[in-house]
Amino acid sequence: SEEEIREAFRVFDKDGNGYISAADLRHVMTNLGEKLTDEEVDEMIREADIDGDGQVNYEDFVQMMTA
């Protein structure tokens, strides 16, 4: 549901600035027990970053979650 997606976005957007940065993503993945290299984190950001601004905004996140 849209509310679940919004809630998930809030979990990833640690600093609440409306964007998921590589640092935000790394933090959440580490908490989930996933040890990722910087390259892996950057690749995840690139794949999710639809508009190419280097971070994942809510619209990018929705597209990723509903793809």
Rank of each mutant, 00 (worst) to 15 (best):
L36D: 02
F9R: 00
D51Y: 10
M29H: 01
G18W: 02
A22G: 05
F9S: 02
E59I: 07
D24G: 02
E3K: 09
V41R: 04
R6S: 02
Y19Q: 08
N17S: 10
K35A: 08
Y19A: 03
E34Y: 15
D15E: 13
A23W: 02
S1L: 11
I45R: 03
D51V: 08
M44S: 02
Y19D: 01
M44L: 11
E7M: 07
H27P: 02
Q63E: 06
L32R: 03
D53A: 10
D53Q: 12
Y19S: 04
E2H: 10
A22C: 07
F12K: 03
N57S: 13
M44V: 04
R6I: 07
M65V: 07
A8E: 04
E4L: 10
L25F: 11
D24K: 03
A23K: 11
L32D: 01
K35L: 10
M65H: 04
D60Q: 14
Y58H: 01
A67T: 14
G33M: 12
T37Q: 05
M44E: 01
T37R: 06
T66N: 07
Q63T: 09
D51G: 11
R6H: 03
M64G: 04
Y58V: 13
V62I: 15
M64A: 09
M44A: 04
Y58G: 01
V11H: 11
I20K: 00
E47Y: 15
V11P: 07
L36T: 03
I50L: 11
F12A: 04
F61Y: 05
R10E: 05
L36H: 08
D60Y: 15
F9W: 04
K35N: 12
D15V: 07
Q55S: 08
S1C: 12
D15Q: 10
V11M: 12
A8K: 07
D42Y: 09
G33P: 06
E40L: 10
Y58P: 00
D51I: 13
M64V: 07
T37K: 06
V11G: 06
E3Q: 13
Y19C: 04
E39F: 13
E40D: 09
E47V: 15
K14L: 12
N17P: 00
R46D: 04
L36Q: 03
D60L: 15
D49Y: 09
A23G: 09
R6D: 02
D15T: 08
K35Y: 12
D13Q: 01
E39I: 08
E40I: 14
D24R: 02
E3S: 11
Q63R: 15
V56C: 03
N31D: 08
A23M: 08
N57Y: 15
D42H: 06
D24Y: 03
D49L: 10
F12P: 00
Y19T: 08
S21C: 06
R10L: 08
E40N: 05
A22P: 11
G33E: 04
M65F: 06
L32P: 00
D49E: 13
N57R: 15
D24V: 04
M64D: 03
S21T: 09
K35M: 13
D51F: 09
N31S: 13
E59V: 07
F12V: 04
F12C: 04
G52F: 10
D60A: 14
E34F: 15
R10V: 04
D42M: 12
G54L: 04
D13C: 02
Y19P: 00
Q55R: 13
T37A: 06
N31I: 15
E2L: 14
V56S: 01
E3V: 09
A8M: 09
I5N: 01
F12D: 00
V41T: 04
V56T: 02
R6P: 00
E3P: 05
E7L: 07
T66P: 03
F61W: 07
I5Q: 01
E4T: 10
R46P: 02
G33N: 14
R26N: 03
T37V: 04
E4S: 08
V41K: 04
I50S: 08
R46I: 04
E59D: 05
M65N: 02
M65P: 01
R10G: 06
D42C: 07
E7P: 01
E2T: 08
I20Q: 00
K14Q: 10
E4W: 12
Q55K: 13
M29D: 00
F9V: 02
G52Y: 10
T30Q: 12
V62D: 00
R46E: 06
V56N: 00
L25S: 02
E39S: 10
D13W: 01
V28W: 02
R26E: 02
F61C: 02
S1F: 10
A8N: 04
A8Y: 06
F9D: 00
I50F: 06
K35C: 12
T66L: 13
V56M: 05
S21D: 08
N31R: 14
A8H: 09
Y19N: 03
T66M: 14
A23D: 14
E7V: 03
A23H: 09
G16N: 09
G16A: 05
E34R: 15
G52H: 10
F61K: 00
V11R: 13
N57I: 05
V28A: 11
V28T: 03
V28H: 01
L32C: 04
G16C: 06
M44I: 10
S1I: 09
S1G: 07
V62A: 03
E59M: 08
E2A: 13
I5V: 07
G52L: 10
M29L: 15
A48K: 08
V41D: 01
G18Q: 01
G54I: 03
Y19W: 10
E4F: 10
G18S: 02
I45E: 01
E59R: 05
R26D: 01
G52D: 13
L36Y: 14
E39C: 13
Q55C: 09
S1N: 08
I50T: 11
A23F: 03
V41N: 02
M65S: 02
D13Y: 00
